[in-house]
């Protein structure tokens, strides 16, 4: 029986929980990271790659990835870019404000697949938010992994979220990685070009011993997949996180349907060979 029919609705995440904002950090001009705890009870536990439905009564509800650490049991951390009515209202919340939360939802990143192998994380733009929990997990499980590498592409130097943390990670001896920007500005002394350039240059990674996890705009992910394939990666070793408009997040309403899959229930994380033909499709 499908998961969505096995239990009553209130056990399935239809009923929202009231959360309160306990911390707010302005990441970029249009993007904030909120820390939130439930008004009653402990914060939800989650796996890297999962998302919640964040809601404000009378305004709306949107899917947002969890961008904090899955290890520490601390407040729920999410990074929101204000692009429209709901996201702007949520990103505009301040400490002490309340909101509704459902979740966590979705299939997580298959981090255990990387055990004994090299973990290659590739993100572009705000795609860094959904992969950030992978980095937390990888650093906590570093001894079980052959290596951890993060390649990140941003629009420009002013569009890099988690800047100080990111630089700290890349400077540490526990992982490797590089940043690249599409557009140069005066204060930037690093590489300029698309994120695929970094894949070509990091020829030391043996594709047969590596799992790649990719997140960013879908066009970027398509180019990255092609670049990884050119480097010898099999589709079955590449995972992506997809975004589609959502309403129920429970596999009921069909809003996120993509061919035979529901992104909310079967994803958002997919193995590339399972969604290869779907990645060029827009919503139904």
């Amino acid at each position: 029986m499908p998961r969505s029919m096995a239990a009553p609705v209130w056990e399935l995440g239809m009923e929202p929980v009231v959360y309160q904002v306990t911390g707010r950090h302005q990441e970029l001009v249009d993007t904030v990271t909120l820390q939130m705890t439930p008004v009653d009870g402990p914060a939800m536990s989650f796996l890297p790659g999962q998302f919640t439905m964040m809601g404000l009564p009378g305004i709306g509800e949107i899917p947002v990835s969890i961008s904090g650490s899955p290890n520490d049991g601390g407040p729920l951390t999410q990074t929101i870019r204000a692009v429209g009515k709901v996201s702007a209202a949520i990103a505009g919340l301040g400490v002490g404000d309340r909101l509704l939360m459902r979740g966590p939802f979705g299939e997580p990143w298959p981090v255990e697949e990387a055990v004994g192998r090299h973990l290659l994380i590739i993100a572009g733009g705000l795609g860094l938010a959904p992969v950030r929990p992978i980095v937390y997990w990888a650093l906590a499980n570093r001894g079980r992994l052959a290596g951890v590498e993060l390649l990140y592409g941003a629009r420009g130097p002013d569009y890099i979220p988690y800047g100080a943390q990111l630089l700290g990670w890349l400077a540490s001896d526990r992982m490797t990685g590089s940043l690249i920007v599409d557009r140069h500005s005066d204060e930037w002394a690093g590489p300029v070009g698309p994120v695929t350039e970094l894949i070509g240059r990091h020829a030391t990674v043996d594709p047969a011993k590596t799992v790649a996890m990719v997140c960013g705009p879908e066009i970027m992910m398509r180019f990255v997949i092609q670049a990884l394939e050119a480097r010898g990666f099999a589709d079955s070793d590449i995972w992506v996180s997809m975004e589609r408009n959502m309403k129920c997040a429970l596999g009921w309403c069909g809003h996120c349907q993509l061919g035979p899959v529901f992104v909310c229930r079967d994803g958002p994380v997919f193995r590339v060979d399972h969604v290869r033909n779907l990645m060029t499709q827009s919503e139904l």
Binding site: Q26, V29, D30, T31, V32, R81, A82, V83, G84, A88, A91, G92, G124, G125, L126, G153, A154, R155, Y159, D182, R183, G193, P194, T196, G216, P217, I219, M220, F223
Partner: peptide, 17 residues
């Protein structure tokens, strides 16, 4: 790829906060 401006916000200048 650089010209595509892949990481631009869906609405060019998303709401400034």
């Amino acid at each position: 790829m650089q010209l595509l401006d892949l990481y631009a916000p869906p609405v060019e200048v998303g709401a400034k906060l």
